[in-house]
Design a protein around this nucleic acid. Structure first.
Lengths: 209, 209
DNA sequence: CCGCATCCGATTGGATACTG
DNA sequence: CAGTATCCAATCGGATGCGG
């Protein structure tokens, strides 16, 4: 009679929530939107989730077919978690939920902000009509490529072939920069942001124009 | 130090989940998408949620500004819960989540299916390019108007001014009908669906064509 | 270190009963 | 009808352990 934890409701909304409605589940999906990640990377991205809980969610999401795991090297070695084809269809929903949540009150400090989160926000905020640019972005040591070209903003993991500008900072600082353009100068001055390349190009990328 | 139940993550997605991520919250929102509802109506729509939990969620959603409560008569009397302007912005997100959840495995029986759920599904499934029609729909005693006109499908609570066809059934039967067109004839025969008007018009409304 | 599993106190969810 | 009060089971969060 434990009747599991299902909503036992035939509606598609309830059935979706049976799969991704439990605590942390959609944040795991968020983390996997840009790139497959390893267990330890997910832990770093979601520092307020305990390890057992994260392991539970990953197992459940895998069991429901939202994510899969793939070995990086054949036969024993590190593995990454990635969205399945079905799981990837959550992307527009999760992004829309993020837009909606912008208007919510801020959570109590201290807060976390993962690289994936801020990159998703940057991708949505960057003006696609700004001039083409390739930016190398080093966030907490992991390297990303932000590319604006022909009206599209792309973000993916790894080194760019060539870069117009190069930025090194951490997710929370980048988040502050996006929220408050005025903070860019002081961040550069105190070294929390290191820039190689044209400052004006960076401002166009982050704030449009 | 209880550090509440917040995700403590600055990302908009996490902040949205701080508001509507708790159990039952989004199903309450779903119930209020079509029409404001009273406490007892919500209980009937979500029979697997206990009363204290429903009261808790309503209080929290109100506190966060997703829903509000309004007195039907001035000074003491019944009250209804309704979405705020901000809460109404969840509609496309919740509908998209429902579309995604259609592909999820069905929950274990027995399942519930509220009038709102099935009407939302009907509204999305009905072909807007079918001929104009006004349908009076009596679901478990509450009356709705389904109106197809000029390429739009509308569903709202209450009696239509005039109706081309009139249907009386319950949400679960209507859900079965939408899922399986072949079940319509037997449902009519055994009386679980009562139709007044043109059967062909009903089939066009439910299944397109 | 990485990828979990185990243990435990604090919260939360669920069912029933009860009150204004 | 519209919720509270109460009790108990399940879950969460945090710390720790542990094999590879």
């Amino acid at each position: 009679m434990p009747t599991s934890r299902s909503y036992r409701d035939s509606c598609g909304i309830a059935r979706a929530l049976d799969v991704v409605g439990e605590r942390w589940a959609l944040l795991v999906v968020r983390e996997l939107l840009l790139v497959p990640q390893r267990f330890s990377e997910l832990r770093h991205a979601l520092p307020h989730a305990s390890s057992n809980l994260l392991a539970d969610r990953l197992r459940e999401l895998e069991h429901h077919g939202v994510i899969g795991r793939r070995k990086l090297t054949s036969t024993a070695g590190p593995q990454v978690y990635e969205l399945t084809e079905w799981g990837r269809k959550l992307e527009p929903i999760v992004l829309a939920l993020g837009d909606w949540g912008i208007d919510a009150p801020n959570p109590p400090e201290p807060t976390s902000l993962s690289a994936t989160s801020v990159l998703i926000f940057l991708r949505g905020a960057a003006r696609p009509d700004s001039p083409p640019i390739v930016c190398r972005l080093d966030l907490d040591g992991s390297v990303w490529t932000v590319c604006v070209a022909s009206g599209k903003v792309q973000v993916h993991s790894g080194e760019p072939a060539t870069a117009d500008i190069s930025l090194r900072t951490d997710p929370k600082t980048l988040g502050s920069l996006l929220a408050d353009p005025a903070s860019l100068d002081t961040a550069l001055a105190e070294g929390s942001v290191a820039l190689v390349g044209d400052l004006l190009a960076l401002k166009r990328l982050l704030y449009g124009g």
